[in-house]
């Protein structure tokens, strides 16, 4: 029992990162209705961006967050406008294949350019801890947790309160209708892809201080992100946040009691059960 509390707290900090990755995925899914297979690869690319920015300028990953978020927003926008959209021809399977093709290019491009070496950064405060109820929470994880909450909040306000947000919601609900009232649907698609990619950049900034980057690193997070999105309800922001936190905790507790190897099954079992019995997720409104 004495392990349970630290495990839960740690699960929450890990889950917060899952939530930020999933926020991006759920935004893209909610509006474009596509499963973005390049999401993990974009996360990997963002981790390299954080790494090289730190190596070149010494800039702190947290300070780099706004810069990278803007840069990756632009990247996502361009990918949607110049690659995904022209390839789609209105077919879901083509969009899926396009994101798969992008993933292949990014993964192997990273391998060719930066080799397969594992890279990490060492921050002076990486080993500082915050003591919460007798548990040691590494400072970078604590920062990540609160930053993730902040990011989710900002996104939620942006979607609820701004014109862009209203347009996004309109397109998500009824794309033909949105087009009729003068919303540039293609632009909104690209904005969503851009925002989703910016989320990934933010997650990378929060993750790298306690993690590493290799060309394959994205795969460690893709399935968890999918699960989070399904758990929370595809397209739902509060769902992604709660889903991410919940999944972090489930993973930590299942790992503790079932062992880390079988503990992974916990995630997939939840995934399958939610898909079967409540495919709209915890917060989803509309059935498929």
């Amino acid at each position: 029992m004495e392990l349970l509390l630290p495990a839960v707290l740690n699960g929450l900090t890990t889950g917060a990162i899952y939530a930020v990755v999933a926020l991006g995925l759920t935004l893209i899914y909610g509006v474009l209705h596509i499963v973005n297979f390049a999401h993990g690869s974009l996360l990997m690319l963002a981790l390299y961006a954080v790494y090289f920015l730190h190596a070149a300028t010494g800039i702190d990953p947290y300070a780099a967050l706004p810069i990278l978020a803007v840069g990756f927003f632009a990247l996502g926008y361009v990918i949607q406008r110049l690659v995904v959209q022209p390839v789609s021809h209105g077919k879901d399977q083509n969009i899926l294949m396009a994101t798969l093709g992008i993933a292949i290019v990014i993964d192997n491009g990273a391998l060719a350019l930066w080799s397969s070496n594992t890279r990490t950064i060492d921050l002076p405060y990486a080993f500082d801890v915050v003591e919460v109820l007798g548990a040691f929470i590494p400072l970078p994880k604590a920062i990540g947790f609160f930053a993730a909450l902040g990011i989710a909040g900002v996104l939620w306000i942006a979607i609820q309160r701004t014109d862009l947000g209203r347009a996004i919601r309109a397109v998500a609900k009824e794309r033909q209708g949105a087009r009729l009232v003068g919303i540039r649907v293609e632009h909104i698609y690209a904005m969503c892809f851009g925002l989703g990619t910016a989320c990934v950049a933010a997650a990378a900034c929060l993750l790298l201080p306690t993690f590493y980057v290799t060309p394959q690193v994205g795969y460690a997070f893709v399935l968890v992100a999918f699960t989070t999105v399904v758990l929370g309800g595809m397209g739902s922001f509060p769902g992604a946040l709660v889903g991410g936190l919940l999944l972090g905790v489930v993973e930590a507790v299942a790992g503790l009691y079932l062992g880390e190897s079988l503990g992974q099954i916990g995630i997939f079992v939840i995934f399958i059960l939610v898909l079967l019995f409540r495919p709209t997720g915890l917060f989803g409104a509309k059935a498929a």
Binding site: P6, A7, N10, T14, F211, Q216, V217, F221, A252, E260
Partner: peptide
């Protein structure tokens, strides 16, 4: 890959 070693450390 294993994403987190905190449990194991605990």
């Amino acid at each position: 890959p294993q994403r987190d070693f905190t449990n194991i450390a605990l």
